[in-house]
Design a protein around this nucleic acid. Structure first.
Length: 426
RNA sequence: GGCGUGGUGGCCGAGUGGUUGAAGGCAGCGGUCUUGAAAACCGCCAAGGGGGAAACUCCUUCGUGAGUUCGAAUCUCACCCACGCCGCCA
């Protein structure tokens, strides 16, 4: 959620910043918020005035009762003003509800340094590794996986529908070894605390990180229980400290979680969806950091580096793309995507998204910290990055490291986890 | 899923309609005493939000929401959560 006080203080500045996202409808949304806010403030001021008046009268009533004096005329006046207070309270609540629901649908303000524009303005900020060269035409991962018995897409479709892959045999073992490799890397070398959170969460949790109320249709839900399957571990992990005040000394806080992710990806059928390119369920190791506001830019760089370390460890060539304002997600102020090269499909695949959310999620989730003992609480800044998503990483791994004989050689770092140096038929 | 009990300040725990924002205890902070510490004794001490340079001041808060009432921690309803027992289940 954006800061209402900032909006009151500098409506033009907020508007200009939001407009960098390139969505004209945001201007109207902002006007609506400002108008509701004016009404709200007027109602609150009037209600406060009336209540103060009534408090004084009530005290007098209590005093007279103790003194056994009559207070009939005061009671009559109180009854009358009570009606007005009730009406004003209802009005205030209505304003509040409207204000809240409008604000919850306005995206974060872009980071000043983020490039302005749509996807065409995204820029590659660095890259690592060389795309492999082959003496043969490299196959796409779904062919490799089928030949080696790593993946059973038809049976996944039978169980749940297309986009729900079944990893089989060495494929399942590969998933497990990747999870261990990534978790060990982040916990032992990058200092993250590991958690295993719920995969179903409530509305408050999804509102905290920004998926609700605006993107309910992207989520799988259990309506009877009013619970939703997490689209990313960011949701439960960031919300661990919802409605809490952290000690300043506890920041920055770094948490890692390995979970499946469930995404409806509605209307995404067709191109770019074959094999593991776009699925409804995939595993991901997620990194979440909470920090002081002044730390968040440095934390963002550090976090992105932690995600990159996974791809380096897996010896997968990748590039880092800084997203332009129009391509940046709803809650994020700035995002770097990590795109891994996949030789079989001949494309850069997004396998991690590293974002800084400034205080946007913290305000929604009410996550604060105490800058110093005894000081007033302030909102933290939240950041997260995939470290990394499995499906596309596995696709890249199979495609880049396939051999002429139809096997797949594994990167050094993965061998001890997997227990063999290659995936092959034998 | 059924029945029951309960949710009060950092913690424990009083409190069934009017100085209760909340007794008492513990913890914490300051002091007396002591070579130092402990013990004992005395004093202070809820949180969050708004305004203010500050002194200070206003608002909100007794699980959440709604209701009754001039007035609610206290009465009514709904919901959430915790614990116990039964049932079911990996």
């Amino acid at each position: 959620m954006i800061d209402v006080r900032l909006l009151r203080q500098d409506p033009a500045g907020v508007r200009a910043s939001l407009m960098r996202r390139g969505d004209p409808s945001l201007a109207e949304a902002l006007d609506a918020v400002l108008e509701v806010d004016r009404g709200w403030r007027a109602a609150v001021a009037e209600a406060e005035r009336l209540k103060a008046e009534r408090n004084a009268q009530n005290e007098e009533v209590a005093r007279r009762k103790r003194a056994k004096q009559p207070a009939d005329e005061l009671l009559a006046a109180l009854k009358e003003s009570g009606e007005r207070v009730k009406a004003l309270d209802a009005e205030t609540r209505a304003f509040e509800a409207t204000l809240q629901s409008s604000l919850l649908r306005i995206p974060n303000l872009p980071h000043p340094a983020a490039p302005t524009g749509g996807v065409e303005a995204n820029r590659v900020v660095r890259s690592w590794g060389e795309p492999p060269r082959f003496e043969f035409i490299p196959k796409p991962h779904w062919e490799i996986a089928e030949a080696l018995g790593l993946l059973d897409l038809p049976r996944g479709a039978k169980l749940a529908g297309s986009g729900f892959p079944v990893f089989t045999g060495a494929g399942a073992r590969l998933v497990r070894s990747l999870a261990n490799l990534m978790l060990d890397l982040h916990t032992r070398e990058h200092g993250y605390r590991e958690v295993a959170p719920p995969y179903l969460v409530n509305r408050a949790t999804l509102t905290g990180t920004g998926q609700l109320p605006k993107f309910e249709e992207d989520l799988y839900a259990s309506p009877r229980d009013d619970l939703f399957l997490i689209p990313t571990a960011e949701v439960p992990v960031t919300n661990l400290h919802r409605d809490e005040i952290l000690e300043g000394a506890a920041l920055p806080e770094a948490t890692v979680a390995y979970t499946p992710c469930f995404r409806r990806e509605a209307g995404a059928a067709g191109k770019d969806t074959r094999g593991l390119l776009r699925v409804h369920q995939f595993d991901k190791v997620e990194l979440v950091r909470l920090c002081r506001p002044e730390q968040s830019d440095a934390e963002h760089a550090l976090l992105t580096g932690h995600a990159e370390a996974v791809l380096r460890r897996l010896e997968l060539p990748y590039r880092v793309v800084e997203l332009a304002t129009g391509d940046t997600g709803f809650s994020a102020a700035r995002t770097y995507d990590l795109e891994v090269w996949a030789a079989g499909v001949g494309a850069w695949l997004e396998c991690s998204s590293s974002s800084s959310f400034t205080d946007f999620q913290a305000r929604r989730a009410n996550i604060r910290f105490r800058p110093a003992p005894g000081a007033k609480p302030e909102l933290v800044h939240t950041l997260n990055a995939s470290g990394v998503a499995f499906a596309r990483t596995i696709a890249a791994l199979l495609e880049n490291r396939q051999t002429a004989e139809g096997a797949v050689s594994l990167p050094q770092a993965l061998i001890p986890y997997f227990g063999a140096d290659r995936l092959s038929l034998a």
